[in-house]
Simulated scan of single mutants.
Amino acid sequence: MHAAPVCSAIPEAVLIAGPTASGKSALAMALAEKTGGVIVNADSMQVYADLRIITARPSQEEEARCTHRLFGHVDADSDYSVGRWTTDAAEVLAAIRAAGRLPIFVGGTGLYFRALTQGLAPVPPIPEEVRARIRLEAEADTAQVLHARLATRDPLTAFGLRPTDRQRILRALEVVEATGKPLAEWQAQAGAPLLDGGTSLRVVLEMDRDQLRARIDSRFQDMLRAGALDEVAVLMGRDLPPERTILKAHGVPALMRHLRGELDLACAAQEGQADTRRYAKRQQTWFRHQMPDWERHAPDTALPALLARFA
């Protein structure tokens, strides 16, 4: 299941990636309790304060068991970017190192891990007026139309994006409009990484597809029993702009449709489960192609393998 170790000395950091519902958080908690480490969030939805349940953020009881950073520190009325996460992660990492503790990055957002280990493209901030204009002009267009438009201005970036990935397509259009340079060119100028992959323990959790699908479906029902619907109702009450990232968290659009009377709860749950399963499949594809040199472990055998590296 696992590849050859990528570092022989005691790791300076541990990076735990994996698809949603694969047991990453439980593994990070167990490792932190054994090593005195600090868990740092590397999931783009768990940064938001408004949705603890539906994003599977650690509970208050879990956060009390060991130190957590970059969880729930962003308001829903913000679009949190990989650039902002990298800045925040650099500050947290410096503090953890100064305290002599082990940083344990855990999450399912591949772009965060890539920025952490490979550096981030130095894209200048996009002026708000440019962002607003691009998004206003795009309101009447489908993602596929926007993708075709991007292909004429930044074909390399367009080639690497799914034609349905509206948010990233818009981001690429904003960059080329504001800077006059395609996003692909900026990404080729990545800065220094925050961590040296050769001295970090990098792990991807893998499990049987049918087992993962069953865990995703079961966890979604657990979320509903824990109050996810009420959580989404409160978020709807904020009347946020429809383009806000948090409104696209997996399961949220379906539950919002139920709250608007467009779906019964059973259908909304099925839609949310299916959306989450599709996301897990995309994550697995990313990890397979973008992280080929990371160790692979099954969730139930990962902890002993990781602890052996600290013996």
Rank of each mutant, 00 (worst) to 15 (best):
K281I: 14
A298M: 11
P124T: 14
S218G: 15
L93D: 00
P5V: 11
A89S: 13
D165Y: 10
R135F: 05
G198W: 05
I54Y: 04
H2R: 15
P253F: 06
V92F: 01
E33I: 05
P122D: 08
L146D: 04
I104T: 02
P127S: 08
Q284N: 15
R244W: 14
W294V: 05
L224S: 09
D75P: 06
Q284W: 08
R162M: 13
P58L: 07
G191A: 10
T87L: 11
E295G: 08
V204G: 01
V234S: 09
G198P: 05
L263T: 09
L161K: 08
G180I: 13
V176K: 02
R209C: 06
I53V: 10
G191F: 10
R97G: 14
V92Y: 00
A64K: 10
L102N: 03
I10A: 09
G23Q: 04
R135G: 02
T276F: 03
P182M: 07
A13Q: 01
R309Q: 12
Q60T: 14
G108P: 00
P163R: 11
R69W: 00
L259W: 02
E185A: 12
V232S: 03
A95C: 06
H297Q: 14
L240C: 07
R257L: 15
T55L: 02
A94S: 13
Q60E: 14
I216V: 13
L102H: 02
A158M: 09
Q221N: 14
D300N: 11
T152E: 12
G23E: 04
T245Y: 08
H73I: 12
